[in-house]
Design a protein around this nucleic acid. Structure first.
Lengths: 219, 219
DNA sequence: AAATATTTTTAAGTTAACTTAAAATAAAAT
DNA sequence: ATTTTATTTTAAGTTAACTTAAAAATATTT
């Protein structure tokens, strides 16, 4: 499959999974930086290849085959991130940027080699789960975004759900890292602002960030 | 640059460097599995981008800019081979196959990371030199093909100049590996057949192989 | 040196992946 | 409920990277 097709399928998968937007051509087009017309064309084409279901003016839905494909690409992306993060001194943003390219030129054979080398990890350095060779994500994720937490409780960071350099720079600066421990000290303005304590520092986060930082409570 | 352009430039570079054929569109086309017409078109296009010099019916010659580009791709290819070979249990053929894809999706930034991780190696697992970031190959190569050696002398294998699976399988089977020591026991039929001794075994090689196995004499 | 074969080039056409502009439909606002 | 706005679709066109077929030039053979 071409890179364009792979990115299209992946964009649908991600939109479905995480983003609130409905999965229509326009939203996918926006993500990929292409025109709406191009997205509609691509949707029709992929429907004819049984990768997604397309009905005029309706949302796009991946077929079983399409989902498998998306998960395979996501797997490769996350394995690359895990490998690059382990071997080299690279930031979360940098590993993401490189994985975005490498994922499309990676055989299943090589993906399995990487996975085995890393001890078949279940999560990448962002805390995102790595699908297995069959496209299954076995691990259950009970984590919640920081914006949904209660003041006074302690948590471990489980996911940093972003592609954004600024966000990762901020995280690196304050020690916000997969696996690190934090305490929520205050919630303000109906959870629009969250105050946390990490490494004996207190920082205040707004919604933009607390919606993409996922945590698990420590009992 | 697109993958098609990169492969075209690389094919010219390699043809120039190693293969006896003249560097005309037809020979490049054959290597890339495209039509002669496509190669001519591409040659014209790349000439307009100052990557090569093109004159009707003449050989193609890379410009300074084109050579730099070729060496940059070759660098990435060989760094990937070195990394994959070190980390994973993969054959020379397999690392080549994967590097062939990865080389086109590798930033200079990542290439430098790989190089540093490996200790800025000067050679890849085939014994091919790895250009530095500026496209320079500093190491002098005095090695000669096995077909040019004299019986009775001892050598170290310095390069296995091939992309072919069969060849690498043969090499693996007999311990013909970069850095390994051999002795040339006989040359037959005007060097068309070469008998060598390796690991206490005697094997007979024909021209096809002795022209692509390079060695350095041990004094 | 002429005839033949091969290679290169030109010409015309295809496909994937886009674009812009206009028409059709759906969603939102009054 | 109707109008306005936004989105989706269709239509027509572009570019890169190919193809095949025929014409032009070069190489090879006799």
């Amino acid at each position: 499959m071409s890179i364009a097709v792979e990115n299209f399928i992946k964009a649908i998968y991600k939109n479905d999974k995480h983003d609130g937007n409905d999965t229509k051509p326009g939203n996918i087009a926006k993500k990929l930086g292409i025109s709406n017309a191009a997205a509609t064309d691509m949707a029709k084409k992929l429907a004819s290849r049984d990768l997604l279901n397309y009905e005029k003016y309706q949302e796009l839905r991946l077929t079983e085959k399409g989902s498998k494909m998306a998960l395979n690409i996501v797997r490769k992306h996350r394995l690359w991130e895990a490998l690059l993060f382990k071997l080299f001194d690279m930031s979360l943003h940098e590993i993401h940027r490189e994985a975005e390219l490498l994922e499309h030129q990676t055989s299943d054979f090589l993906a399995n080699k990487i996975s085995a080398y890393l001890g078949n990890p279940k999560f990448d350095p962002h805390g995102d789960p790595i699908p297995n060779e069959s496209g299954e994500i076995t691990t259950v994720d009970n984590s919640i975004p920081l914006s949904k937490t209660q003041a006074g409780k302690s948590f471990v960071i489980s996911r940093l759900m972003s592609d954004d350099k600024e966000f990762f720079d901020f995280c690196a600066l304050h020690g916000l890292k997969y696996g690190n421990r934090i305490m929520v000290t205050n919630q303000f303005q109906n959870n629009k602002m969250t105050q946390i304590s990490i490494n004996h520092n207190t920082i205040l986060l707004n919604e933009d960030f607390t919606n993409i930082i996922y945590v698990n409570e420590i009992n």
